[in-house]
Nucleic acid binder design. Structure first.
Lengths: 336, 336
DNA sequence: TTGTAAGCGTTATCAC
DNA sequence: GTGATAACGCTTACAA
């Protein structure tokens, strides 16, 4: 297997140049030779070598995607979206797992550079100066997914976290809750942590509710364990709370578990709203009402942006993706 | 950026051959020239072009991985394991999402062929003749992950599903249960469906329990929805059952949800054991006891096998990975 | 120890 | 229309 263009040329009695022209639908050959060549290709089951093509075209039809964590559930949806869009446009995607580690990230960037990928999608993390500079030098398109950069002007695809958090809190308020708590992610996380806290506070203030810091418990991350810990802390600090906004579905799951152990009924005694709307959200007891991020579409969008840029589009606009609230059963009306 | 070997050669006043030798730690140069060249490389921040290398070496340091579904949670763990091992060995991984679709799969195989990947990991699906033949023609290593082939002799990495299911059922039996049901996957699924049913039946028989078909409800797949449906059916057909073996964690989650709605307490009134031990298993109420498959390690193993094969190892042995039971709180002792 | 030159499988620029 | 032929950036005989 794996004949070359030469074999085809020989078999069809033409030059390799002609075969190449036909392969790339250029002009410069008669219908007859075209048929002849196509036949030869068919017979040999010839397929062009993408590596050789890449070498001369300086285009590999491959993009690189960097994830801080692979096993997080939202990653798979992002990846599925990216992969779909990429495949539709004839490209492949190489996944890189940086573990939020600076030197690993740089190593991956090196690798992607050596492999001459056409573009890079950088997800869910702060774009450090070092990364940015390196990618600048690589001179290929970059888009940020589920993150953004204050420092550099790089197109991104993201939900407006502050606004989304605002919506989530507002939802709780509209349901009649006035004593609302939040189990947040890390407040030093400027991408996914802080903005959600800010949005939460904004909503309270805009609706004339006082913001009591003891009702906001900050976790280290967005995990199930953080949710459990956070919930316990909340009960100690602010037992009066009737509704909780969890900064991720996993946190919400943790909170639900902890609540169950303490014999607190959800949503009768306590309402909980999650964030992300991962597939697990429907699996909790009760099913989790959650602020939905359209991860799949975000992945698709980011990939499409990268390809626009690869194809020379100059001004690619960042996209704030619409969020929404997926109502299930973990939030109850609060009667006055 | 992106100098070539030529630039380095010029800067160091040597031929490109010498640079190449040094790059590949071959012999044939003095320490002095080596230093000179290394310096030039450093100064220019030169990095070899992997595409050009790939063309001549016929080795791209890239492998392809085919997944039927990306968004399933076990995929991420498999992928994480694969990616880690691949990266450690200096390779990249291209992910392909076949959606269990024959023609899509073939298209991906074509693509991977054109991109000249060094090997392919095929996961969680039946290896159809068409796929196998094609990969044969590609003439690159193939390993099966979380699946195996009766028809062809292809190395695989897998848990022994029949045995694992046996263990799960046995665990329930050892806990004193005698009326045990199973919510299985699709019985026509010869990889993940049938063997688990068989193992379940075996265990019952070996322990002198009668196998009652009404206590085995077959679903279409392994999803949460299947679990809910399956559970309801189970209650109708075999309400006497005191323990249920769910063929996946998602099914178990569905069953738990349905049980909760019917006011059935777990594990007091009904025990449930899951299968897979995904990260969600710890998140259920009560935390799910589950038969654990070491997905991460399986991914790693499969990748290592591929590289062994790429490096010329002739006889690579298939690996049956050890399963185990992750005890949590969804199974109770059954008193006589 | 080092350099020259022929590939690897393409595409693209010339001539004819 | 068509065919040589020079790139692309590298590795590797083969010479020197």
């Amino acid at each position: 297997m794996n004949y070359t263009i030469k074999d085809v040329a020989k078999k069809a009695n033409v030059s390799i140049a002609t075969v190449s022209r036909i392969l790339n639908n250029q002009k410069g050959y008669s219908e007859k030779t075209k048929r002849k060549v196509l036949e030869a290709i068919e017979e040999l089951d010839y397929h062009p070598n993408a590596i050789a093509r890449g070498l001369i075209n300086k285009k590999t039809s491959t993009i690189g995607v960097l994830f801080p964590a692979l096993s997080s559930m939202l990653v798979t949806e992002l990846l599925a979206g990216i992969e779909k869009a990429a495949h539709q446009l004839g490209s492949s995607v190489i996944v890189c797992h940086t573990e939020s580690n600076g030197s690993k990230t740089m190593k991956y960037l090196q690798l992607l550079n050596e492999k001459r990928v056409d573009g890079i999608i950088f997800t869910s993390e702060i774009l450090k100066e070092e990364y940015y500079e390196f990618i600048q030098k690589m001179n290929i398109p970059l888009v940020l997914l589920s993150t953004e950069s204050r420092a550099y002007s790089v197109p991104y695809v993201k939900v407006d976290d502050r606004h989304a958090a605002y919506s989530a809190a507002q939802y709780l308020i509209k349901k009649g809750h006035t004593r609302i708590g939040m189990i947040s992610g890390n407040q030093n996380d400027l991408i996914a942590g802080k903005p959600r806290i800010d949005g939460f506070k904004d909503a309270l203030m805009d609706h004339g509710l006082s913001v009591d810091d003891s009702r906001i418990v900050c976790s280290e991350g967005f995990t199930f364990a953080d949710g459990i810990k956070g919930f316990k802390k909340m009960r100690q600090q602010a037992a009066e709370v009737t509704a909780i906004f969890a900064a991720s579905d996993e946190i919400a799951f943790g909170a639900i578990s902890a609540a169950y152990q303490q014999g607190i009924r959800i949503p009768e005694e306590l309402s909980i709203i999650g964030y992300d709307n991962l597939s697990i959200a429907e699996m909790s007891i009760p099913p989790l009402t959650s602020l939905a991020q359209p991860f799949y579409e975000m992945g698709e969008k980011a990939a499409n942006m990268i390809f626009d840029m690869i194809n020379g589009e100059q001004l690619v606009e960042s996209r704030i993706m619409p969020h929404s609230i997926m109502e299930r059963s973990s939030v109850a009306e609060k009667e006055e």
